[in-house]
Design a protein around this nucleic acid. Structure first.
Lengths: 206, 206
DNA sequence: TGTACATCAGTGAACGCGCGTTCACTGATGTAC
DNA sequence: TGTACATCAGTGAACGCGCGTTCACTGATGTAC
């Protein structure tokens, strides 16, 4: 049962892409929303795994290059799976609310970025609590989440990681959804600079 | 003819919200896409004006507070008009391609941010060309656009303005589309910090 | 001041379409004896 | 080795619904004489 390749967010279109009649899907999914959930979980995992692999290809010591590799991989995935990307990061589907168990696969790609940042701070002698605004970052986050993924990483750094995460995805969304059209000429370099500034924000000074 | 308040991106729903039968809209719009275009232009102008007003309420000399005011206004508008926001900044509507003349209203809100940044540099004695990576920002942008809106502002600053623009909207989109759920606890403060970091990036040092 | 006519905003029925969902079915594959 | 039956993936027709769009129409408002 290959869910791959489908993406029209209409049950009938998914069936069509799988070369199957629409009612056949009801053997596997009770309802359209269940199908949607499966597609979403699948896409999150696909993206997450893709980013993980990209990060692993760069030595752990070079955090900045790792961050660039992961970000570039996310962007590449987004551009080759624009429908999936829009499903995950575009407008929410009107009637649909994602069930709780989609949270973990959704976090996967954020965890990749977070781990890179966490690694960097662990290797560094700098103390993130000393940061300019380290003190203002208390109580900013939910305590439970990301805690398992970034153990022992102080809250300011985790908060900054979330900012980097949304910066990268904000940039990719704007590119994919056409908002840079007419203003940015060299998007590749633009994106690289965005990631680099993000890295400046979030990596420890050396 | 009040277009206000409508937003279901279905012609029939727009008609319904206006208390009118669906075919009545064909007296004003030849096609559904024309209606969509009108709604989009309207929403862009509404948001743009709202941000402009917010910026004007803060003295021009205090660029950082101005940036915060504009960003907060954008976020507030987004939260009180979530459907309009998704229409403008969410997934593109499948069959629809926005006509050329939507570009100007679309740019309006970016111009607000850009002008604040431009003002700041004009008042400062610092030279943006001296910046760390000022040299790497050549040829990054389209030359025509934003030029009228930010006259005499060097390219590195204009490029940074675009990054701030997409950072702010990236953060708002993540909030509205539910991606911070379970990780960010105090979104108001989180957003403020994001804007402040963006300001650090884009405003001249004093 | 009153009648005749044009304008024009909005109505309501109808169309063909794609959607999600149901249901009785077909036909291939696997298991029991 | 061969027949009988259960399992189960997928079919195809049908449903009610909301959509975009059309078309002939109604009825109020404004203008001409």
């Amino acid at each position: 049962m290959a869910e791959k390749g489908a993406s029209g967010l209409s049950l009938r279109e998914v069936a069509r892409e799988m070369g199957v009649v629409s009612s056949a899907l009801y053997r596997y999914f009770a309802t359209r929303d269940d199908l949607l959930t499966a597609l979403i979980v699948d896409a999150y995992n696909d993206l997450g795994e893709y980013a993980e692999r990209a990060a692993l290809r760069v030595p752990r010591s070079d955090s900045r290059r790792r961050l660039h590799a992961a970000a570039a991989a996310i962007r590449k995935w987004a551009k080759s799976n624009p429908n999936e990307y829009a499903l995950l990061y575009g407008s929410p589907v009107p009637g649909y609310e994602a069930p709780q168990f989609t949270v973990e696969p959704a976090a996967r790609v954020a965890v990749v970025l977070g781990s890179i940042v966490a690694d960097a701070w662990q290797q560094s002698s700098a103390d993130p609590e000393d940061d300019d605004d380290g003190s203002t970052m208390k109580g900013l986050l939910e305590t439970r989440n990301l805690d398992g993924a970034m153990p022992g990483v102080p809250e300011p750094v985790r908060a900054l990681s979330l900012m980097v995460w949304s910066q990268i995805f904000g940039c990719i969304s704007f590119e994919l959804f056409g908002h840079y059209k007419g203003s940015v000429r060299n998007i590749n370099r633009f994106f690289t600079i965005v990631v680099d500034e993000a890295a400046n924000l979030v990596l420890p000074p050396d």
